[in-house]
Nucleic acid binder design. Structure first.
Lengths: 156, 156
DNA sequence: AGCGTCGGGTTGATGTGTCAACAACAGTGC
DNA sequence: GCACTGTTGTTGACACATCAACCCGACGCT
């Protein structure tokens, strides 16, 4: 286990393939359900969650990017698409003339309120309903560790 | 836990956000390393792994799609891009005139042999080096369960 | 043979994500 | 005031992913 060569051990190899497969299939399945159910994509949903949880339903664009851990250009592009569909709107920032707010629109709020229960249910059905509290705890610890190492790598 | 409402519990909610964040950051980090190191993308690498592990370095296109759990059009589009860069080649199938083989080229083999150690090392550094065998085991069980439920959902 | 259906694979349109370059403003120091 | 630097956000070009539509050869039927 964890020997010197560059390669992964058998068990690790196996888990890693499951990991990448899941990375392909799970977002695809969740996205299809969400799309069919409410016309939202998974990224749309993530944006609307953050906005609807925020004070006055609006946040600075960069702040939204940090909450989602999205690159700034990804954020900008996606907001442009969502704005075109009337889910969010951009507003000027009084304090900082180069900045901007994104605000959820009534249509956006309605979309997410209609979409959320079904989405949460799908997540539970596919993932959490069959997990023990202990497994959830281990997942949380493992993910926290990987995220910490990622953060350490980024800033170097 | 796992009560009646459609929502996730606190611990589950937290793990789910970690999960989606990881889904954003981990492939991005791995992809950047791979790209900088060898000019390959993560999907390129996945294709080349399958091909280099296959007999004679070639497989049917649909078989490759199944190994990667990719949609057929994704497979086709990606092979077209890789073919343009000389990493793989398409060959006719003698048994079935509508079918096709993909084969790894010498350039493709060289690319993956040069890229693999660094990639494996990054995966170990970010993920596996800090995991106990027990955590790896739990991950495997959890992922297997989710994959099974996904498979069950697909065909319904 | 002729016909209908299925399956393998490609294509085009569109949505999504990344990088590099840029425009515009803020903050600091002179 | 003026340059310098850092930050906010947008844009364009390109890689990647999905869906629906399609082509064409295989297979089964009569």
């Amino acid at each position: 286990m964890s020997d010197e060569g560059p390669w992964l051990g058998d068990a690790e190899q196996c888990v890693w393939r499951q990991w990448t497969t899941l990375d392909t299939l799970l977002p695809a399945a969740l996205g299809r359900q969400l799309q069919a159910d409410s016309g939202l994509s998974l990224p749309d949903f993530a944006v609307l969650v953050q906005l609807s949880e925020s004070e006055a339903g609006r946040v600075r664009v960069s702040e939204l990017g940090q909450m989602l851990t999205w690159e700034k250009s990804r954020t900008s592009h996606h907001l442009t698409r969502m704005e075109k569909r009337g889910l969010v709107g951009r507003e000027q920032c009084p304090d900082d003339a180069r900045g901007a707010f994104v605000a959820i629109t009534p249509a956006g709020r309605e979309a997410i309120e209609q979409a959320a229960p079904g989405h949460a249910c799908t997540v539970r059905r596919l993932v959490f309903d069959h997990l023990t509290p202990d497994e959830v705890r281990v997942l949380g610890e493992v993910y926290a560790g990987v995220l910490a190492r990622l953060a350490a790598t980024e800033q170097s």
